[in-house]
C-alpha cells in the first residue's frame, strides 16, 4: 500500500474526532489506542488576533484501512469525516489535488 496516502485539508478540520472514533470502531481498538490522533493549535496570528486549527495525524497503527480498501470502501476516517476534508488516493493523485488545495497536508503512513 506504499503508493497510497491521506490528504487532509486542515483549513476545514473542525476537530470533531469522528476520524479517531471511526478508526477505533473499525479496528476494534480500545481507548488509548488509535490509528489517527487529532491535535489542536491555538496561536496568535495575522488575519485574526487568534487562530485555531486542528490537525489529524495518522499514527503507526494506521493501515489505511486495507480491509475496507479491498472491499472498495474508503478508510473509516475519510468516510465519516464530518467536514469532508480528508481524501484517500494514490500519492500521485493526491499531490495533484494538493496543488489546488491550500492549507493541506499529505501523509504517506505506510
Amino acid at each position: 500500500m506504499s503508493k497510497y496516502g491521506l490528504l487532509i485539508n486542515y483549513d476545514y478540520c473542525t476537530g470533531c474526532q469522528s476520524c479517531a472514533v471511526a478508526c477505533q470502531q473499525e479496528h476494534g481498538f480500545p481507548a488509548g489506542k488509535c490509528g489517527i490522533k487529532v491535535t489542536e493549535y491555538v496561536y496568535a496570528a495575522v488575519r485574526k488576533p487568534v487562530a485555531i486549527d486542528f490537525l489529524p495525524f495518522p499514527t503507526e497503527l494506521c493501515d489505511l484501512c486495507i480491509n475496507r480498501h479491498q472491499q472498495g470502501e474508503e478508510p473509516a476516517c475519510v468516510k465519516h469525516c464530518q467536514a469532508a476534508c480528508m481524501a484517500f488516493g494514490s500519492l500521485a493523485e493526491l499531490v495533484e489535488q494538493m496543488e489546488v488545495t491550500p492549507r493541506s497536508v499529505l501523509f504517506s503512513p505506510r
Binding site: 470533531c16 469522528s18 479517531a20 472514533v21 471511526a22 470502531q25 468516510k79 465519516h80 464530518q82
Partner: peptide, 9 residues
C-alpha cells in the same frame, strides 16, 4: 454518509 464520534461509539 457522515457520522459524529458519539454515534460511532
Amino acid at each position: 454518509g457522515r457520522s459524529c464520534p458519539r454515534v460511532l461509539a
